[in-house]
Simulated assay, not measured.
Amino acid sequence: MKRNLLFTAFIALALLSCTVQAKDTVVTDVAGRQVHIDTPVKRMILGEGRQIYLLSVLQPDAPFKGVVGWREDLSQADPENYEAYAARFPDIENIPTFGGFKDGTFDVEQAAALKPDVVFMNIEAQTATEDAGYEGKLAALGIPIVYVDFRENPIKDTTPSIRLMGQLLGKNDEAERFIEFSDEQMARVTDVIEKANPKRPRVFIDRAGGYSDDCCMSFGPHNFGEYVDIAGGQNIADGIIPNTFGTLNPEQIIASNPEQVVVTGGDWEAYVPGGAWVGVGPGADMTKARQKLEALTHRTAMTGIEAVKQDQVHAIWHQFYNSPYYFVAIQQLAKWFHPDLFQDLDPDATLAELHERFLPLSYQPGYWVSLEAADE
């Protein structure tokens, strides 16, 4: 009799445990949508492979745990980090890949077959997702979409996105520790700029300079445009480009006469083989990157501008525009714009600490390069 009572109690505890493990949770995503989802999430599809930048923070020992499918962009947009992750976590080669929501190549049937608990989508894909009816089709299959944002308005949306994904994965503590680190590192810039109120240099952000022959893609009031403002600069595209992304023509750049030029770069061999882009990133060849950066100063848009005359032309890792590591870019921008104010700030050390404390990969320098004499 006693054995039967113990067995019954064990079964009851087991059932209670299962109930606790799968809890219906209502969350509000960055699109303002209320979503019902069973938490903690065990199986997920990443609408963009670069969402792994955050997953690696939340679950560094097994960043790909629970990822049953993802968009194939990390290997093409950031091959150095993809190779580093693949070397340590070779199973990523077996994760099914998807096309994009925005270009209509996402396969709903393939997604359903993988039985995900959630699809994490970037906010910029929302319109295309709704227009194609993906939300309704996935909802009919019991698969919720949750929108996050690290690109359209990262200063506003990154922290809520970190908290959201942390909550859904049962990684609240990990999320909060990273947010605390991010806030501390941001304050090392914002506190100084607020107190000193320095004269702001005119800054041109050359988005993916050299990626194509067209000139020049840039940023409006958000993303790198806002990074410039926070770092104590004046974005020359402010008031010209109304949204996050847009284009300046050479005449507008020359007329604005920027005192600082910052090119965003990366290894885009998969997209533009042998292109004029500046290949900065982990482990990048700095000599080659500097040569390609210098070559970009000979474009028409750079004619006679102050930044070129004074060698205040720099390149920085493009993926800072699309990851929760953006605060490192803001530190480096601040150091370029106001070297006297930030003599003691070491963005390299910040990025190294980020890797040591939060990421499963060893830090490799190479995320930025400059034409100024101090870098020679």
Score class of each variant (00 low, 15 high):
Asn223Ser: 12
Glu135Thr: 15
Thr190Ser: 11
Glu294Ala: 12
Val27Trp: 09
Asn122Lys: 07
Phe106Gly: 02
Val20Leu: 13
Phe342Pro: 00
Asn4Leu: 14
Lys335Gly: 02
Phe342Glu: 00
Ala187Met: 04
Gly166Glu: 04
Glu259Gly: 04
Glu353His: 09
Ala175Asn: 08
Glu180Lys: 14
Asp38Gln: 14
Thr97Trp: 01
Pro282Met: 07
Leu74Arg: 01
Thr247Ile: 10
Val41Leu: 00
Phe358Arg: 07
Tyr227Asn: 08
Phe358Ala: 05
Glu124Gln: 15
Gly279Asn: 12
Ala231Pro: 09
Ile253Thr: 01
Tyr82His: 14
Asp107Arg: 04
Ser212Thr: 13
Gln34Cys: 07
Tyr321Asn: 13
Leu351Pro: 01
Phe178Asp: 02
Ala62Arg: 06
Arg163Cys: 01
Ala373Thr: 13
Tyr147Ile: 09
Lys42Pro: 01
Met186Val: 13
Ala12His: 02
Gly100His: 07
Arg163Asn: 06
Ala196Trp: 11
Gln364Gly: 01
Thr28Pro: 08
Gln59Leu: 12
Phe10Met: 15
Pro144Asn: 10
Ala301Gln: 12
Pro201Ser: 03
Gln59Tyr: 12
Asp267Cys: 05
Arg50Leu: 06
Gly246Pro: 13
Ala14Arg: 05
Asp346Ala: 06
Tyr211Gly: 04
Cys18Leu: 12
Leu15Arg: 00
Gly136Gln: 12
Glu48Gly: 01
Glu353Ser: 15
Gln34Pro: 09
Phe10Trp: 14
Ser370Val: 03
Lys171Asn: 09
Tyr147Val: 09
Gly210Thr: 02
Met121Val: 14
Pro365Met: 02
Gly304His: 01
Ala111Cys: 08
Asp213Ala: 13
Gly104His: 09
Trp268Arg: 04
Ala86Thr: 12
Gly66Ile: 08
Gln126Ile: 10
Thr105Arg: 05
Gly210Arg: 00
Leu16Ser: 06
Gly281Met: 06
Asp340Met: 00
Gln312Lys: 11
Gln331Thr: 08
Gln310Thr: 10
